[in-house]
Simulated scan of single mutants.
Amino acid sequence: MSTPRTVLVIGGGAAGNAAAILLRRAGIAVDLIEAKDDWNATAGSGITLQGNALRVLRELGVWNRVEKSGYGFDAVGITAPDGTVLHVAEDLRTGGDDLPATVGMRRPRLQRILGDAVRESGADVHLGVRATSLDQYGDGVAVRFSDGTESRYDLVVAADGLGSTTRAAIGIADAPEPTGMAIWRIEVPRPAGVTRTDLAYGGPAYIAGYCPTGESTLYAYVVEAHRDRSSIPAGSYADEMRALAQHYGGHWPEITAHITDPSRVNYTWFDRMLVEGSWHRGRVVLVGDAAHCCPPTLAQGAAMSLEDAWVLARMLSATDTWDDALLQGYYERRVSRVRPVVEASVQIGRWQLDGVRDADVPGLMGRTMNMLRELP
């Protein structure tokens, strides 16, 4: 082959793990570094995976493990704050008719499945290691690491998330911007009657929702206007979330009774970012949250990241010529799909913040999700 195929993946989250697995399958040598010493120390309680995310997980060869570990369902309920069910809609199967519309699962469990698949792929994994410098030279990158070693690669895939230091190191100034909302999350035991996501609009929170993540677990969340996190003592997280959740009926009283341990509650602002123009500089290319992020109003964050990795790996494995045109083509292919997801996710939240009562939320969601049925 005219081009040696060696890739460094920076970041061991969903996008980085997916890229490593797919590039190894194509016969490309992959090193993956992750700044955390504990690869499975994943923040967050649960994750909602739409069908187009499941489609990529099937390509990765982990769908059977995901299916057994999560909870699949095909509907979403809209309720009043008191728990009265107002409407139940069938979710669109964006991954195809042979996959569920949605799978909820514990986020650490998904991380473990993907991490195991990376190791099984033969990628060389280094935990507790950062890239301290990236020096580009023609058709490659010389990388120095925090453990004192250095190596050269034909390509560096930056999958180091929302606060990507790699993005800044290669001169891309874009950074996440808050949208004005924040979310409280917790994992609790699943009430027996919960078999789908239900969303309550109104009451003291913008949204109160939950998603089953297994036979005995559930991921619950409430969305409010964002506050200065430094003004909220970590020891009061359970009290803060419970104060909002206690105003909701239906299954919420049973859920709320388990919101007692502040260490199990996660508080996060909603952010928005979309890097414009290109997602690469030389032989360093961004994937996933390092390139784009959006509020979880459409539950598409993980799906967009996984799709990035799938598209990039397919493009890299289809040719020996890894050049600017190829990486620019990756950006153009992805941005046309990511942009409407980011914009729709932000718009839905903006309508809520502005109190717009006649907004066409179902129409916007339907148009966006229908687009996602197509292959990326």
Rank of each mutant, 00 (worst) to 15 (best):
A131K: 08
D324H: 00
I186K: 01
V338K: 11
D91R: 11
A19P: 03
S236F: 10
N370E: 14
D324Y: 00
L298T: 13
V356G: 06
Y71P: 07
A175K: 03
P189I: 10
L92W: 03
A309R: 14
P81L: 07
A208I: 11
V156C: 03
A313C: 06
D271P: 05
H280W: 14
D323L: 01
G51P: 15
S317P: 14
G163D: 11
N52I: 06
G193P: 05
E177M: 08
D323G: 01
M365P: 04
S336G: 10
G13P: 12
M304S: 09
L274F: 02
R337M: 01
L86H: 14
N17H: 00
V125D: 06
R55L: 15
D139V: 09
T217I: 11
V222D: 14
G355A: 00
V88C: 04
A43M: 00
M371Y: 07
L364H: 00
R93L: 11
H292D: 07
N40D: 09
G61I: 02
S45F: 05
A18Q: 11
R167I: 13
I78R: 00
P262T: 04
G140P: 03
G61L: 03
D139G: 12
G115V: 04
L353A: 08
D154K: 01
R373K: 15
A117D: 07
D261F: 06
L54M: 04
V342H: 08
A26M: 15
D154A: 01
D198W: 05
R337Q: 02
A41R: 01
S69E: 10
M105R: 12
D271E: 10
G96V: 02
A43I: 00
D98G: 03
L244N: 14
R106D: 14
G16M: 08
P100K: 06
L155H: 05
A299W: 10
G104W: 02
N266C: 11
Y201G: 11
A168K: 08
D97W: 10
G83R: 11
L286W: 01
A291V: 12
F73H: 09
P108N: 01
V223M: 15
Y206I: 10
V129A: 07
A313M: 05
Y201F: 13
V356M: 07
R58T: 13
A200Q: 02
R107T: 06
A26Q: 15
R357P: 09
Y137N: 06
E59K: 09
D135F: 02
R58Y: 11
T197D: 13
R167V: 13
V7E: 08
M273R: 05
Y330E: 01
W39G: 13
G250P: 08
V30R: 04
G70I: 02
T321W: 10
A75R: 12
L199Y: 03
V311M: 08
